[in-house]
Nucleic acid binder design. Structure first.
Length: 923
RNA sequence: GGGCGGAUAGCUCAGCGGUAGAGCGUCGCCCUUACAAGGCGAGGGUCACAGGUUCGAUCCCUGUUCCGCCCACCA
């Protein structure tokens, strides 16, 4: 006896079981020595900062769909999990915790103890991230889980750094960098956001030295940062500006300090049209000014310390926060008559991506990667099609960025991260006043390990560079460091280049581009064949999810449900009773169904609910099948030699089409299309039609017909479960386990993914069933429109001029009668319609139902009038088009013919409806 | 200042040169022996706007307006 299913689908009950089942049997594990074709994806390692959000759920869903699909298709699949140490982000989180819980700073703890805390945090957070992935059903190979700071990654990082250094692609330089005064570290250009703000622009008069007293001439500069004037070392004008050419080479006296600075001509910095055409030059605190300073060999005066407080260079203004300094400078400028005016001014300020503090450009010694050199092969590889982007539109963005690369600042003044493998001799390096090594002046020795002896002084007392590497340096090595590089492992051989890099488009530059550059450099080949970039998940209104907006949805709340008080405010409104448990499958199916290319995903909770209903539908269809099987079981080659009935042939043909479409959608990364094809088949064809059509045979006498129906039902359901498994692994496994079929594997996830079988395509069957479906729908329309209860059996007359339609209807009354709720049907060629009947005309059929005194005449009249009006509207359109000579002459003949036929049909329809209406009126 | 998306039914979205589709929501009728998380039926759209190409445009082209994102050193 077949196992039965509970009446309603309960995701939490079902989903809890399968992850452990799969893992215990080792199904998620890849095999580096397998002879199957490889398919590999490395999971973009989530940051250890916290728990997963919906973006991660989308990542996991899409990658799991690909992996499960490929695994079922005979590939040796590696989907490799890992987590990222996320340098600055994690350090900040732990610092904040430390402050909150113990009211201590990291400096009070010291580097070693602080790092111990971060590692503790990493353990906890990493564990949670793993659990969350398991709740989502992600079939990751946990035996290969990695961390960007584990021993293997450290070896890889050192190796890569060393190689780049030896090749001259990593160097140290004293330059202007983005500095976060809050986090006290350098930032790369990418780690800086630009924020539009309303500020002011101030005009300040700088007196020209040597102009006649009394008629003293001034140059008026415009600036949004007046406090930086303390570090000005020139003013610049355009060489072609007639207003100022005479003054070039002279000097101005800096207000407040009285320092004399030159007037220089610079066509790059100065735009004559803008402001007064005079620009103050502060080479130590502005990128443009810095370049200008280099061009003119100007002194560079840093007036801020690491917290952006003014230092001794600021003279009387020393020791102030930069904004306080601005206030004081402006006050004094005003008091002394140098301030010409202040105007409101919209400006874009650079802020730290992590803490939103306004970034201060700062001169400092940092490590750099020569990005342009690495970019060349990365550009070429994409040009040559070795790696392609999906959607393709990202290719242009990639090229644009790659072709305009500046050198990459990779050193960070943090504690959490890979410490730079550079060492400084304590004996012969320059020292600071306090006796410690002055790293900014000392010469670095780059080495895998601490050197044993100094080449210069032969002593062996070294200190490692205290800085760490940008977190993206280690993640840039991820596709090969996780496979054992720099060792030549079997994994590397089998799985590199990886098949697909699936990630959010927000980290195209941060990560994808860096992997391309470093992969090509270190491995000599691209890190992945295809880059699929998905959209950002937003809330239903299209707003970015953020804690401050209170619209964050925790994926696990959707999966497991949550109490109202645990929800973000905007969700609490929607679910005052708490969030129901939709289950991982519902969430996964929703995310897949909403994944279009190049767009934001607005997560509609109603659609999550809708797809949960779909799972329930699938569940109940399966229940129906299982409860009607008796002791049936499906053997090998089940369809061979079967006398298939029309409905059987029809559903197999439709299944075949769905199979083909789902396959090709997946091949093109069209997740939504694949999901919706399968959805439509299951609900709209299998459930709505085949199951209904099968009931006659199923409830009838035992025998070959019943056996065949059972065969087709189980066969179709088995196929559907396989097709759907990559999308909704839990519920499909649960059902599949109960199917009475012969299996060559214990689990659906290891079963074969179905391919289309051309012999199942059956257009004749589809054509033959079409009039039956049309007749049923026509009769349902009459019943629905006339509010006739379903129990009321009707008698109908169906007339059609087409003999093949008549033949089909006559042959398949066994489908027509029960599904249309008829007690009797009369089928014939067009003739006089029955007296006092209502009509439905369409698809070549004229359907009449005698009124029998049960129908409301007025209602029937209005229904018929409405139908006639609709037909007439369409007739009008068609007549106009067919009356247009150029349409008839130029449109393809088949289009014209189609319209002619359609017009005739409609005219006939109008005629018949009109006649029917007249008879009702006459009654 | 460049670049990329988007604008289709009340909401979330498909469609992308030949009569506008789905889910949810709405309105009827049904607790029909898989499913009321359901069945059947219905209503609901000048496909942002203006031009152009075409026999024909929601779909192609141009421009405009909004929305979102990315890049850029505009004092």
């Amino acid at each position: 006896m077949t196992q039965q299913l509970p009446k309603a689908y309960e995701p939490s009950e079902v989903e809890a079981r399968w992850d452990a089942f799969w893992r215990d049997r080792g199904y998620f594990r890849a095999d580096a020595s397998s002879s199957k074709p490889p398919f590999s994806i490395v999971l973009p390692p989530p940051n250890v900062t916290g728990s997963l959000h919906l973006g991660h759920a989308l990542t996991a869903t899409l990658q799991d769909i690909l992996t499960r699909w490929k695994r079922m298709s005979g590939y040796n699949c590696l989907w490799l999990p890992g987590i990222d140490h996320a340098g600055i982000a994690t350090q900040m989180v732990v610092e904040r915790e430390l402050k909150k819980n113990e009211n201590k700073s990291r400096h009070e703890l010291g580097r070693a103890d602080f790092l111990k805390r971060v590692w503790e945090w990493k353990e906890k957070s990493g564990k949670r991230i793993g659990e969350q992935h398991r709740y989502l059903g992600a079939s990751l190979d946990w035996s290969r889980e990695r961390f960007t700071m584990d021993a293997g990654a450290s070896v890889a990082v050192k190796e890569a750094f060393l190689r780049l250094f030896e090749d001259g692609l990593i160097y140290r330089a004293y330059r202007l960098i983005n500095w976060c005064p809050q986090d006290h570290t350098a930032l790369s250009d990418l780690e800086v956001d630009h924020d539009e703000r309303q500020g002011s622009i101030w005009h300040i008069a700088y007196p020209v030295v040597g102009s006649a007293p009394g008629s003293e001439r001034s140059l008026v500069v415009a600036t949004t940062r007046p406090e930086t004037m303390l570090g000005d070392t020139a003013v610049a004008v355009h060489p072609d500006d007639p207003r100022y050419t005479r003054l070039v080479g002279k000097s101005v006296r800096l207000p407040l300090t009285g320092r004399e600075i030159p007037i220089v001509a610079d066509p790059e910095l100065v735009n004559m049209e803008f402001g007064t055409g005079v620009v103050k030059v502060t080479p130590a605190h502005d990128f443009n000014d810095h370049a200008t300073g280099l061009r003119h060999k100007l002194p560079m005066i840093s007036i801020f310390d690491e917290s952006a407080r003014t230092n001794a260079e600021a003279g009387a203004y020393a020791g102030l926060d930069r904004y306080e300094a601005r206030k004081r400078v402006l006050e004094d400028l005003g008091a002394q008559g140098f301030l010409v005016k202040e105007e409101p001014h919209a400006l874009s300020v650079a802020v730290c991506q992590r803490c939103a503090t306004v970034v201060e450009p700062r001169l400092s010694m940092q490590w750099w990667v020569k990005a342009q050199v690495l970019a060349e092969p990365a550009i070429a590889a994409v040009e040559q099609g070795k790696t392609r982007f999906v959607p393709e539109s990202w290719t242009g963005t990639y090229f644009h960025w790659m072709r305009n690369l500046q050198d990459w600042c990779v050193s960070r003044q943090l504690w959490w991260g890979h410490q730079i493998p550079a060492y400084y001799c304590r004996s012969c390096s320059p020292k600071l006043a306090n006796g410690s090594v002055d790293f900014s002046q000392a010469e670095a020795v780059v080495s895998r390990e601490m050197p044993s002896a100094c080449a210069r002084c032969h002593k062996g007392d070294f200190e490692q560079d205290p800085d760490v590497l940008d977190t993206w340096f280690s993640s840039g090595l991820w596709p090969f460091s996780t496979l054992g590089w720099p060792e030549e492992t079997p994994e590397l051989k089998t799985f590199y280049p990886t098949s697909v890099m699936e990630t959010g488009h927000d980290i195209l530059f941060f990560w994808v581009a860096r992997m391309m550059m470093l992969g090509l450099r270190m491995m000599g080949d691209v890190p992945f064949r295809t880059v699929y970039l998905h959209a950002m998940v937003r809330d239903e209104k299209g707003e970015k999810m953020s804690k401050t907006k209170g619209n964050v949805i925790d994926p696990l709340d959707l999966v497991l449900g949550a109490k109202a008080e645990a929800l973000a405010p905007s969700l609490r409104n929607k679910f005052p009773q708490g969030m129901p448990a939709f289950g991982a499958d519902s969430l996964r199916f929703t995310l897949a169904a909403l994944t279009q290319q190049g767009r934001d995903i607005k997560l509609s909770l109603d659609r999550v609910g809708g797809y949960k209903a779909f799972l329930n539908k699938l569940w109940n269809a399966s229940r129906f099948v299982l409860m009607n099987l008796g002791d049936f079981s499906l053997g090998p080659k089940p369809l061979e030699g079967r006398q298939l009935t029309l409905a059987d042939r029809w559903v197999l043909s439709r299944l075949n089409r769905a199979t083909r479409e789902a396959q090709s959608a997946l091949e093109g990364f069209k997740f939504a299309e694949a999901a919706s094809t399968l959805y439509q088949f299951v609900w709209g064809e299998l459930c709505d039609w085949y199951i209904e059509l099968s009931k006659g045979a199923l409830y009838g006498e035992d025998g070959a017909a019943k056996e065949t129906t059972r065969t087709v039902l189980v066969y179709t359901l088995d196929r559907v479960l396989r097709l759907l498994h990559p999308f909704i692994p839990f519920v499909t496994e649960e059902i599949w386990q109960k199917l009475p079929i012969e299996r060559d594997t214990e689990s659906l996830m290891m079963a074969n993914y179905p391919g289309a079988a051309p012999e199942l395509d059956d257009p004749e069957a589809e054509a033959e069933l079409a009039p039956v479906i049309a007749a049923i729908e026509g009769l349902r329309n009459i019943r629905g429109e006339s509010n006739l209860p379903p129990q009321l059996k009707l008698e109908a007359v169906i007339q059609t001029a087409q003999p093949e339609l008549r033949a089909s209807l006559e042959k398949w009354t066994r489908y027509l009668l029960p599904l249309a709720g008829l007690s009797k049907v009369e089928i014939g060629p067009p003739g006089p319609s029955p007296a006092q009947s209502t009509a439905f005309i369409g698809h070549g059929l004229e359907i009449y139902v005698p009124l029998l005194g049960v129908l409301d005449l007025a209602e029937e009249r209005s229904r018929l009038e409405k139908e006639i009006k609709k037909a007439e509207g369409e007739i009008g359109g068609l007549e106009k088009r067919l009356g247009n000579e150029s349409f008839v002459a130029r449109a393809p003949p088949e289009v014209v013919e189609k319209d002619r036929v359609r017009l005739e049909e409609l005219q006939a329809k109008r005629g018949r409806l009109g006649a029917t209406l007249a008879r009702i009126r006459a009654a």
